[in-house]
Amino acid sequence: MTECRLLNDAPSSGCWNMAVDQVLLENASAGRSTLRFYQWESPTLSLGYFQHYSDRQQHSTSLSCPCVRRASGGGAILHDYELTYSYATPSESRVAEQQAELYDAFHESLINVLKDFGVDAIRCETPQNAKSKFLCFQRHTIGDVLLDNHKITGSAQRRFQQGTLQHGSILLRQSTAAPELPGIYELTGIDLTAEALIQAWLPRLSSKLQSDFVGAQLSSNEAERIKIVRQDKFGSHRWNQKK
């Protein structure tokens, strides 16, 4: 078992959330793993790294939401009633070596946890709209978590030479800014809270990742670095409208 920092952050803006994840990835490159859970202070659209900013025009219900470009791939996500996680780990960590293994570590353990709550989700085995849809949750790729053929969890990665960041979203409820996407509540009637899910998921993640989680806060150095990354990158038009 290796030690892994555990952060459970208060809801924040999109550019702050993405800046934190980048700094955690930078720290992973220096040898430190971190698992982070977070939420969003207002409904926010995040674009996949290669998506065009102008494509958000095709999604009318989220036009009034703030928008941030992720460093990771995949389609756009409307973050609202969801639990978001990020996991940053050094590349020499065995589980970071194969991208599919890391997706499976989170998604398979989540499926087992959801079963405990009476939610019968399954792993996607057949890709569907893998590239063509604007929204990530309308793209089904192998390894996604599905419930009644609706995607309720997807993850994406950014991989550097010395570190890997994976972050993902668990759709707890439908958002008025993305009404085409039902959440766990709409599909099952089960009102699952983010905190209950975190507490149930942690032991299974610990086993899957072979990690002991140690509760922590961001250091003052990290907080300073996050401010800079937010200002220079994720909060800037240059980054968010770069494509």
Partner: peptide
């Protein structure tokens, strides 16, 4: 540069 596959963006060195 960067390359994307299966939602993973990897840097090229």
């Amino acid at each position: 540069g960067e390359i994307e596959s299966v939602k993973a963006v990897s840097d090229l060195y």
